[in-house]
Design a protein around this nucleic acid. Structure first.
Lengths: 350, 350
DNA sequence: CTGTTAGCGCTTTCAA
DNA sequence: TTGAAAGCGCTAACAG
């Protein structure tokens, strides 16, 4: 809080008008105020550096012009990107954004929500670690009619809550289908942590695509990872070991689908160590299109998870709720998009 | 803002006590309150889902328990890391963090500051694009006694303002000295954008180290970049062209110092395209130690810019100001640290 | 141990 | 065209 700053009262006294008048001028409600009065007030405002007290204003208007954004960790580029989407939409509406990192810890989640709903924020945008547990704080929020919007969370657990989602099954299916279309049949898969909802959905998509193409899933072609770089490396190692080369320098699979970019990179590295080239020897498709500037090398064809757009859309949806023009349970599902970056080879009639 | 929620008055009426009593219980000021009264109130609080109104509370306490964090873009991993440092320290103090992205745009900066100082935040942490311009909004802030702390900004322009800084000159000097120590003499340099303060300082550090070692700086060994990946690639290209190989497959320099990681990576790539290996043919040292998880490949020996620690320290410093225990112009300068990652070869007596 | 009283700085009817 | 008055929900003296 600043040192002693002028209040509306001071300005009123200085100008010899009432605080009502000052209030009107400051809020540009010049409905019926003398031109000279307006000027006099404006001058005093500038001269004495008057800034209306947002807290007092909130008291009356019952609005804080702030939305709370709860996420696991801004350092994760996906969430940073999402946060920026949220912020930009908020700014356009004259709102600001209160940031809370939870590390996926339910206690921290609860603490954030408690802080935010104590009218620090007019509404909450919520996204968390992708675990399956349900945080009951949301039942409370809904029961109390507190405005919020979920991001990739509790799709089934809260069917009537507004939320923004991504079609993970469809994305994985699209990735694998792309490989199938290019003639691949032996398609290895690196799964994400199965305690995570989207990792499960991506696996479903992989299996669905194979099923649709009449390709029998081979357990030997599946390896588990945890979304981190190292696990991609290890998974590729395991896949290579379990699918011994038939011919020299050829693994028992011609393509690989990794559940996220980081694991794809790890696997890529492992393949290179083995003297295998991408896409000549093995084609790769991954998931996320993570926004690492140009650092992400080598380039891998991937399914784009539009973090910025999801954040922006969620913010818009929250404003719909705030403005009372949201249908209960309004939802937006983002559809997957394949971004080709040259890591897939066409092996048809080759 | 939520639907109709119970206020302190409601709870008081329900429990048949005064609002003062409720206030004391809720704020854990059980100084002198009957055990049964406490319990009765607590029960009602839980049952009716009473959440004290933070706005009303701020009105009295003249504290919002919020600090504003103004930065160019959270999507930049450096700022994301820094933001997390800020947030963690704030949380430990029961504070929250209000995030503002400015894109380095002065108008946005001003808008953020105006919003924040209207008592949305108790203080502001400020870091911006590293341009040389001075935003006069800070003179105002200081004149008004509004608490703030700068991060890598206006070191000279505001000598009496609290701030957290990094020794860029020392860092670059350390990097180049490391190469000199390993016997390198022909050390190429990729500079950052010279409109940026820290890019200039890093160049100074490079020149200083050479000077100290009695090595004459060769203009042909310097190339300009803009901190982006592509510019590192182009800079290396230019360096190779201007320093034609004396012997087959050997450029006219044995080492390269890049002003940041991204450019180092771009240069690395260009060298590889030329068939040059790191560190066998060329040693590289960069700057930042950017927190890209494990994506940052290949590994390059670098000077660490401790983003998280800088954010944390800045937050602590702001709290010092808030608590009135900061000396005017208190400052903290972070010292550089070399992180070896194997991209430097020892060429002494080789 | 508990309650009464007096605002915090502002917006908003309603009168003048 | 202007202003007086009534709070928003809460905390903090100060009395009982």
């Amino acid at each position: 809080m600043a040192g002693s700053k002028p209040t509306i009262k001071d300005i009123a006294r200085i100008c010899g008008v009432s605080i009502t008048t000052v209030s009107k001028v400051v809020n540009k409600k010049h409905a019926g105020i003398g031109g000279k009065t307006v000027e006099r007030v404006m001058a005093a405002v500038r001269e004495y550096g008057y800034h209306p007290n947002a807290v007092a204003r909130s008291m009356i208007t019952r609005k804080t012009l702030t939305v709370g954004l709860v996420l696991p960790d801004v350092r994760n580029p996906f969430f940073a990107e999402l946060a920026r989407g949220v912020e930009d939409v908020c700014n356009n509406r004259g709102y600001g954004c209160f940031l809370c990192n939870t590390d996926g810890d339910m206690e921290k989640e609860d603490a954030c929500v408690a802080q935010l709903r104590g009218r620090v924020a007019d509404g909450i945008l919520f996204t968390t670690q992708n675990s399956v547990e349900f945080n009951p704080v949301f039942d409370r929020l809904r029961a109390d009619g507190y405005p919020f919007c979920l991001i990739e969370r509790y799709l089934d657990a809260m069917p009537d809550a507004p939320g923004v989602y991504f079609d993970n099954v469809g994305g994985a299916r699209m990735a694998v289908r792309h490989l199938l279309d290019k003639g691949h049949r032996r398609i290895a898969f690196i799964a994400g942590p199965q305690g995570s909802v989207n990792a499960r959905l991506r696996r479903e998509g992989y299996e669905l695509a194979l099923l649709e193409a009449g390709v029998a899933p081979d357990p030997a072609l599946r390896a588990d990872g945890d979304y981190h770089y190292g696990s991609g490396h290890r998974a590729a190692d395991s896949l290579l070991a379990r699918n011994a080369a038939r011919r020299r320098k050829r693994p028992g699979f011609s393509a690989l689908f990794a559940s996220n970019d980081l694991m794809a990179l790890g696997a890529y590295q492992r393949l290179e160590e083995e003297g295998l080239r991408v896409p000549e020897d093995v084609s790769i498709v991954s998931f996320d299109n993570a926004p690492f500037p140009a650092v992400m090398r080598p380039k891998v064809t991937t399914i784009e998870l539009p973090a910025y757009a999801m954040g922006a859309r969620a913010a818009e949806m929250l404003f719909d709720v705030l403005d009372g023009r949201a249908a209960a349970g309004a939802r937006h599902v983002f559809l997957p998009k394949l971004v080709e970056k040259g890591s897939v080879r066409d092996v048809r009639e080759a």
